[in-house]
């Protein structure tokens, strides 16, 4: 039996390629934005000196105290150092969705109905989670 050949499952190779890019870009953005944040180059929405008194609070109290954005409202404050970090997080979290969108047409072309259905439902679940429907 021949060793595993990813080209025999084209969706596997395509998924790996897109995941590698998404992860690479996501990590790079996460590290750069974090450095901008902790060095104070980009001023944060919540002063770093206040964090030790805030991060011990339950989420509800923390949000009430800081008025930190929820849902996609963070996009409006992306110029703030701490909020800027969420760009890297969003890229990392969106990588899987991008990979599913990439492999969907491969399954469609192969007429593999079960995997087309799985892909469509997973994409719907991820979009719903990202959109804050849950």
């Amino acid at each position: 039996m021949a060793p595993f050949d990813p080209s025999s499952r084209p969706e596997q190779e395509a998924y790996a390629r897109w995941l590698a890019w998404g992860t690479r870009v996501g990590f790079a953005v996460l590290v750069v934005t974090y450095l901008l944040y902790v060095t104070g180059i980009v001023a944060p929405a919540i002063p770093t000196e206040r964090l030790p008194e805030l991060w011990a609070l339950p989420l509800g109290e923390y949000l009430a105290e800081t008025h930190a954005p929820t849902g996609w409202a963070w996009l409006a404050s992306v110029g703030k150092g701490d909020i800027l970090n969420l760009v890297g997080v969003a890229i990392l979290a969106a990588s899987t969705l991008a990979c599913y969108l990439r492999v969907l047409p491969i399954f469609v072309r192969a007429r593999h109905r079960a995997y087309v259905a799985i892909c469509v439902v997973e994409i719907a679940v991820l979009i719903a989670a990202a959109a804050g429907i849950f």
Partner: peptide, 24 residues
């Protein structure tokens, strides 16, 4: 894990429960 945790991570992010100072 990379697929499953993606959906949960979106929930935590939308609720405002991701603090960069702890995560990075």
């Amino acid at each position: 894990i990379s697929i499953i945790n993606t959906s949960s991570a979106w929930v935590y992010m939308n609720k405002g429960a991701l603090l960069p100072m702890i995560i990075v």
